[in-house]
């Protein structure tokens, strides 16, 4: 997993790093929502400016963000190609059977690509600048009104933070197991499909066995230390809303209004 950047946290002390995770979650959702309103060069330009400014505020270089896109490159290319060849309408540039490249198809492909890239980048921005546990805390806090309708918010949050906590552990373990199997002559990523599927078994079984064993250990350890489900517990990490959080929120809302306004004016 040497080159795997997507969804990781990069420690830092920037403006964005210091924001309340709740604020960052809300900003991310606002941004993703607004992306779907964008439909013209100008609206996208506004969104790109906002994204670049936010990236700049994280203190992490743009190169690192772009590298985060790399694992998803094939997915992006695939969508674009599908859109180009199967989209219809407008001037026809090229046709072969029922495959055609048309004006509208090209435009649509470009729009979808932009949307994809913007959404991935803004989610990456959230995970790069926010510790997984802070994200879980933020989600719990944002969902807390649901307690009134007896939604198990605390349990969900615990599940989420345990999951987030152990993703890197599992990835490390998967890598170790892969190496151990490589040492026993397994070739990952070569041969036909059948061959490749076969190589998954020697990774997944040990990975699951270890994960289950660990889960049992953790639950025993939690019970031994008095954890009971569904009780009101106090927080070790308190979330605090600062002026910067409100300020960032205002900036995002202003940009959103601009994008929606531009769309309404059909610019």
């Amino acid at each position: 997993m040497d080159k795997f950047m997507f969804g990781r946290y990069i420690p830092g002390d920037s403006w964005v790093h210091r924001l309340d995770p709740r604020a960052k979650l809300i900003l991310t959702f606002i941004y993703i929502g607004v992306v779907f309103f964008a439909n013209s060069v100008w609206t996208y330009a506004v969104l790109v400016v906002l994204l670049l400014a936010s990236i700049f505020a994280t203190g992490i270089s743009l190169r690192v963000f772009l590298r985060g896109l790399r694992p998803l490159l094939w997915l992006l290319m695939f969508t674009v190609v599908i859109q180009i060849f199967f989209g219809a309408g407008g001037h026809v540039y090229w046709q072969w059977g029922w495959l055609s490249v048309t004006h509208d198809g090209l435009i649509n492909a470009l729009l979808i690509l932009m949307r994809f890239v913007l959404i991935i980048m803004v989610s990456t921005l959230l995970t790069f600048s926010t510790q997984p546990l802070a994200i879980a805390d933020g989600i719990e806090s944002l969902l807390s009104p649901l307690r009134k309708v007896h939604f198990p918010v605390a349990t969900l949050a615990l599940m989420l933070s345990l999951a987030l906590r152990f993703v890197p552990t599992l990835m490390d373990e998967a890598e170790k197991i892969m190496n151990a199997q490589r040492a026993r002559g397994v070739d990952f990523g070569t041969g036909g499909l059948k061959q490749q599927v076969k190589t998954i078994v020697p990774i997944l079984i040990p990975l699951f066995v270890n994960a289950f064993n660990r889960a049992v250990d953790i639950s025993t350890a939690m019970e031994a230390r008095g954890y009971r489900d569904g009780e009101n517990r106090t927080k070790f990490r308190e979330l605090k809303w600062h002026r910067q959080d409100t300020l960032s929120l205002i900036i995002y809302v202003v940009f959103s209004v601009v994008v929606i306004g531009l769309r309404a004016l059909q610019l």
Binding site: K176, N179, A183, V209
Partner: peptide
């Protein structure tokens, strides 16, 4: 690299985690 892997056998730390 496969021929090399056969000549140099590597037993990992806690190798029981690779049984499947």
């Amino acid at each position: 690299l496969k021929p090399l892997r056969k000549k140099v056998g590597l037993v990992f730390q806690f190798p029981e985690n690779q049984l499947f």
